[in-house]
């Protein structure tokens, strides 16, 4: 067994302890991750009582939207300038159901998610063959096409730029009443926490590892016998269905959808927020969305042009090593937590 002549074998043996250690770390991680969820989302949930409610809802929905992009960018290595297409697919799925067919907002959300699933499953089958920048651009093309479909071509059903209003068509629902803003905020909060936990869970599964592997070296993944097309397609559909869910929640929250949602001018927003927060980090989307929405709100109230500051911040983040806000804060936070844990033990 310990034939140490073979260098590859020796490497493997040298690596076994570290494998064990990462397993232990992962077990510790699963213990800690409840804390990980509860602290930031708890703070944001509490903030719902202090900060204006629309702001908190906006941050939460935006962070769901960004989680999708974060998964694409950080786990699959896809940079997509076409997220508004999927956002709009979800929003219009919900809007069509609530405007033409039913009154149950929960069914509306389901309809939106289904619409997003169908659109991303079809688009993904064609798109995931392309790499990085081409992928970004075909997605941008899809966004523009969706925008003009909604604005002009499908105008008889989408009412063009006037949009669809369905706020007063939504029925009161028994358990969590969506028509009540505070309970809607609770629902959005629950969805955000659930999605966060879901993506955290994905990270630990074989599928998550495969996603990361296709990002790093697609040939090796093929060599190991995995179907890399299926992995990327599944990841793509997963992420964009999440984006559609965010769109559907936007629709419910405003009670109104318009083609503006699929506007190409907003196409880079989720990518920017992902990078602002820290690509591939778990809290990145939340921190990024908070910083972005907060800055947009605050700066546009104080100075008037938020673009300048967002641009400046983005360039600074990129030049500082593209770790993002959370990527920079994380080591500091970990040191704090570590010190606090060791002190409380003594």
């Amino acid at each position: 067994m310990s034939n140490t002549c073979d260098p590859a074998m020796r490497d493997l043996e040298a690596n076994v302890p570290s494998l064990k250690r990462t397993l232990a770390e992962r077990m510790l991680g699963t213990l800690k991750w409840w804390v990980g969820i509860l602290v930031p989302f708890g703070v944001l949930g509490l903030a719902g009582w202090i900060l204006p409610l629309p702001f908190v809802m906006e941050v939460l929905i935006f962070s769901i939207y960004t989680m999708a992009c974060n998964f694409l960018l950080g786990r699959l290595g896809f940079i997509s300038f076409g997220q508004p297409a999927y956002l709009a697919a979800g929003a219009y799925g919900t809007a069509f159901y609530l405007y033409y067919f039913g009154t149950d907002p929960y069914m509306g959300i389901v309809a939106g998610v289904l619409a997003g699933f169908v659109v991303s499953a079809l688009a993904g089958a064609v798109f995931v063959r392309l790499r990085s920048d081409y992928f970004a651009l075909v997605n941008l093309a899809l966004t523009v096409i969706v925008f003009y479909m909604l604005q002009k071509v499908l105008a008889p059903i989408t009412h063009g730029d006037n949009g669809l209003w369905f706020l007063d068509r939504m029925r009161n629902t028994p358990v969590l009443d969506i028509t009540n803003p505070r309970q809607l905020a609770l629902l959005i909060w629950l969805v955000a926490v659930a999605l966060w936990a879901f993506y955290k869970y994905i990270d630990g599964t074989i599928f998550g590892a495969c996603c990361l592997a296709t990002k790093t070296n697609e040939d090796k993944v093929k060599f190991l016998g995995y179907n890399d097309f299926a992995i990327r397609w599944t990841g793509f559909v997963l992420a964009n269905t999440t984006a559609a869910l965010a769109g559907s929640l936007y629709g419910i929250y405003f009670g109104f959808v318009s083609p503006e949602m699929a506007s190409a001018a907003r196409a880079a927003d989720p990518v920017v927020v992902t990078i602002l927060g820290g690509t591939g980090t778990l809290y990145g989307p939340l921190v990024g969305a908070l910083a972005y929405v907060g800055m947009k709100d605050l700066v546009s109230r104080l100075v008037g042009n938020w673009e300048f500051f967002v641009g400046l911040l983005l360039v600074t983040v990129m030049l500082a090593g593209e770790k993002g806000i959370w990527g920079t804060l994380q080591p500091i936070a970990q040191r704090w937590v570590g010190r606090w844990v060791s002190e409380s033990r003594e």
Binding site: I79, D133, V272, N305, E307, L319
Partner: peptide, 22 residues
Amino acid sequence: ELTFTMITSFGILIGGVGAIKY
């Protein structure tokens, strides 16, 4: 890499648009 420059230059574009608005 390519995407890095793409995003950085997008930041410059947005910042510049803000400056023009100002």
